[in-house]
Structures are given as structure tokens and as C-alpha cells.
Amino acid sequence: MEGPVMKHVSTGALVAALVAVSGAAHAQADKAFFSGKTVTYIVATAPGGGYDTYGRLVAEYMQKYLPGSTFVVRNMPGAGHLVGTNALYASKPDGLTIGTFNTGLIYTQLAKHSGVKFDLTKMSWIGKAATDPRAVIIATQSPIKTWADLGKMKDQQNFATSGPGGANFVETLALTAILKLPIKMLSGYNGTDDQLAMRRGEIIGSIGSRSSFEQFVNNGYGRFIGQFGGGEKDVPQMAELVKGNAEAERLVRLITAQGDIARLTAGPPEMPASHLAALRDAYKQSMEDKELQARAIKLEKPVEPLYGADVAKAVAEALNQSPEVVNLLVEGFSKGK
């Protein structure tokens, strides 16, 4: 038993040394480093939700593809993913702490929020597991059948949001401001509060991730009138619906990016290249594992992965916004009305 492991370790160390000396861009994956080590996988929400499910799935299979390692999932909920993400960013960049958090933090960082103690562009990106497009949803009993109908409404339409700083608050505020929509925003709708309020009729619509409303729509309580990205063909794309309005197009691109890079996995900045390469390898192998794919489908959480550098690129692009959009975001975080 000891022989092969030792050999791995020494090869790994040698390779790492070589990499360090040559400064090669493409680091050799040092999987042996993880043997006998414990990797903490931070999930920035409480147990039970989508992030937790994906996080546990990813951790379980990464452990499989990093032989000898032990992955421990640690839930660090609080302040809308800020607590967990700050902790992840500040952790020791030795490859033994990685984690997952809400992509909506892109907005939070853009708005230069005081609770942000991280820079997403500097994180060590490992991959993302899903595409979870945002969508505009309208309650069934409303006469609004299409995006165009919404713009034509004479009365203010009640839209539910979680509140200033929440992803759907920022999105609704910015869309309403740019397109001059007849929308009245109401705050304090968390979790599935908005679905119940739509059933009661006090709320007409909301913006949310398509997956969280899929069942609501299937049960006949609501309909999607626009979608930001994603592969589904049954709902019109927002990019098409706002064509011609340059500012709106930019905003739609930002919201789309948010959904494209959902369920991500990342580590703190400045991780040793060989360790990051090993983590990225293991992540890719996990995503390609047939068993993981089958389980994800059973959970109705289909896997649409993207890896390492591509995720880093997508995040950087999303964070590169015009001052106009940034101003809208700052406004969305600072005041409620």
C-alpha cells in the first residue's frame, strides 16, 4: 500500500517543483497532495436547499476522484450568502477549502456593497454545475399573457421581491427603470412567499430562477412571459423582447450571465496552480460521471457544466458593466423606494 502512494507523492512533489521552477502556465495536477487530507466544502446557505443539494453532490464525487481525500460539507448560512463567501475568500489558499455560493453576489459586488469582503475576479474558479436561467413569471389569473401585455397595462402591477439587495429586487428595479414598466415593487417576499401571494392574487408577478417556479407553472398557477438565456424553447427570450434598447440589452446580458453560471464551485485566490489543476480535474471527472448525472436528473437538477478558466472568464465578463448599469445596481442596494 505504502509504495505506490509514496511514489505518487514524490512524483507530485517533483512535478510541483518543476512547475514552480519553469513557471509553466499549464500546471500539472497534483492529485497526490490530497491523499490523506480533509477538504472543507463550504455551502453558503442552510442545509436543504438547491445549493446544499448541489454542494453535497459535488463534494461526494470530487472525493471519489481525489483518491484518499475526505470531503466535509460545512453549511455557513447568513446575510444572503455573504457570511459563507467572505469566509471562503479569507480561507487559507492551500486547496483544502473550496465552496459554493449564490451567483447573485455578482450584483452585490458590482454595487460595491459594504458587506462584500471578496473580489470574485480573483477567486480560484473550479467550475459550475448548472444553467438556471432567470425568468419573469405572471400569476395565471392576470390578463397579462405576454411581455408586451405587461408594458401596456394601465394600472401598476404588484411585483414581489425579497427586498433591497436581493437579486430579484435589483433585477426588477433596473428593468422597471430602463423600460418604464408599470410595476409596483413590494418587499419582504422570501422563499415561496411570492408563490402563495400570487395564488392569493395580491401579487401579479415576480422575477426568479426558472427552476424554482417550474412546478408552480406546471401546477397551473402561473406562466413565464420571458426568460433570460437558457436552452428551453417554450418561453420567449428577453434578449429578443428588448431588442433595440441598448441599455436594456446590456442589463439582460448581465441577468443572463447570472443564470448561466449557476451552482458554482470556487476557492480562495492565489491557490497553488498544481492544487487548483487537481481540483479542476476532479470536478470535471465528477461532472462527467454517469452516476452523478443520473442522480442529478432524478433530483430535477440537470447538470450543465463549465470548467475552470471558462467560468473565470464568464464571471469577469459579467462584472464588466457600464457605469449606467452599475448606478442602477447601487440604487437597487441602497434604497427601497
Binding site: 447568513g78 458587506g115 427586498g163 439587495g165 429586487f169 418587499s187 419582504g188 422570501n190 434604497k335 427601497g336
Partner: peptide, 15 residues
Amino acid sequence: MDPQTGTARFSGDYL
């Protein structure tokens, strides 16, 4: 966190 204004009340810098 005040859900209406998005300001953290009586929380200082403690997340």
C-alpha cells in the same frame, strides 16, 4: 436586515 430598506439595523459590522 430591514426587508424594506435593505439597511442592517443595530448590527454594526457584524454579519
